[in-house]
Design a binder for these strands. Structure first.
Lengths: 235, 235
DNA sequence: CTGAATAATTTGGTACAACCAAACCTAGAG
DNA sequence: CTCTAGGTTTGGTTGTACCAAATTATTCAG
């Protein structure tokens, strides 16, 4: 059937339909989509449209496509949402002030989290912090490992509230800001200083002193930023 | 030339190339993309691949496509990034606790902004707040207008820092949470209470008292949330 | 000469058939 | 039972063709 350009959007109906199936679970998470040829029969459309629909689903993060593999259904999570905008963010970060603007929001968010931690952290939360801090200390002489434990330490703050948005946000920050960090010289003495900064934040939380904890966090991140600037100049 | 499936990604190269041209300005913002047939000649590929590339660009927000019109180049901004994930976010909000999780992050972010405002707001910032507050008061009896001025008042906080990410974030919050707000009964007495809450926040900032301002903001948003729950139940 | 009506051309949306190469599946050899 | 060889399915790509809307060129009335 050749109906030409009806409304200009044949693929959208397919997208809608598949979207419903994914949300309802009729297309189960982790399983491959029906083959393109099956879909074109089922919906009575050309493969062109099927492929367009699949691509749309892919760009919305509802299916995961690798070249030459069957698309795999993915029920979207917050990480999916973040991955979706990574492309655009890449552009924004390359603009003047892009990295700085993003990093500033990170400071703001994490400062808020640290305050909340200082006010509300449970015994378990503090134990988690202590553990992460110890891991961090033991990695001072291994810069690769230190980077990991550093991230882990900060991650604790994003996990405390239990709100699933926040860990995703942290992963976004680390992903997007990683290119800068990765290309910076790894100096053990910096590790030492960073560890001490972490310790100061931890102290503030232990003391239930939001202002002190926040101040320590801000110092820490401001210094990190200064190091970035010293390496890359104004970005 | 039929080279079959070489590497599985012909469109990606085109996307890359066009992306560069957009970023460098050789494809100027606001102008239409070359026609599909021109592109297929220039890159020596089939129209299928051209269309696929264009769709990818569209999904990344680098071009704006309307059915039957030439795609228009759009240099991405933070709003573009937000628009890109709106689809996925829609899914997430329909999940249990989705709205709540998002609203909680909004409280957190805005609380942080209010604190910063209380600490650092300039004379101009405070004037802007005062103006928004007055507009808000004068709209108490017009629920439609009140909603607007309400949003405007909160917007001031997202603008103070000058970081362009934050206004985009606020637009995202208002867009994504609007469906709930829109369907809630508009009662003048609620307008009155909300105005008073805004006033309290403003007072806190005027007094340079971050704790007071934050507390007022949290009360305000918590009450808004309570109203949402009263209307929709657990969501 | 101007402006509106009209014709010609371009361009995006869709369909269909065919081909390649990688992934997948199946059956037979070891 | 494992492993390999071969055939089959499937995604990636091309080319051609057609329709209808958008754009441009042309014509003609005022």
């Amino acid at each position: 059937m050749n109906t030409g350009a009806r409304s200009g959007r044949a693929a959208d109906q397919i997208v809608q339909s598949l979207e419903d199936r994914i949300r309802s679970g009729r297309l189960a998470d982790g399983y491959p989509l029906p083959s393109e040829r099956e879909l074109m029969e089922e919906f009575d459309i050309s493969r062109t449209v099927v492929r367009e629909a699949v691509q749309t689903l892919s760009s919305r993060g509802l299916v995961e496509t690798r070249p030459r593999y069957r698309p795999v259904v993915r029920k979207p999570g917050f990480d999916t949402a973040i991955a979706t905008i990574s492309g655009v963010v890449g552009h924004l970060l390359n603009q003047p002030g892009g990295v700085r603007n993003l990093f500033e929001t990170r400071i703001m968010v994490e400062a808020a989290l640290v305050r909340e931690a200082a006010k509300d952290a449970t015994r378990d939360d503090i134990a988690a912090l202590k553990y992460a801090l110890d891991e961090n200390r033991m990695a001072i002489n291994d810069s690769e490992l230190f980077y990991l434990t550093d991230t882990q330490f900060h991650a604790v703050f994003f996990n405390i509230s239990g709100n699933p948005v926040l860990p995703a946000v942290q992963r976004a920050y680390t992903t997007w800001l990683a290119p800068q960090w990765m290309r910076m010289p790894r100096l053990p003495e910096r590790n030492q200083r960073n560890y001490e900064a972490h310790q100061a934040i931890f102290e503030g939380i232990l003391m239930r002193d939001p202002d002190a904890a926040e101040a320590a966090l801000r110092d820490h991140l401001a210094e990190a930023w200064a190091q970035v600037r010293a390496t890359f100049g104004d970005i």
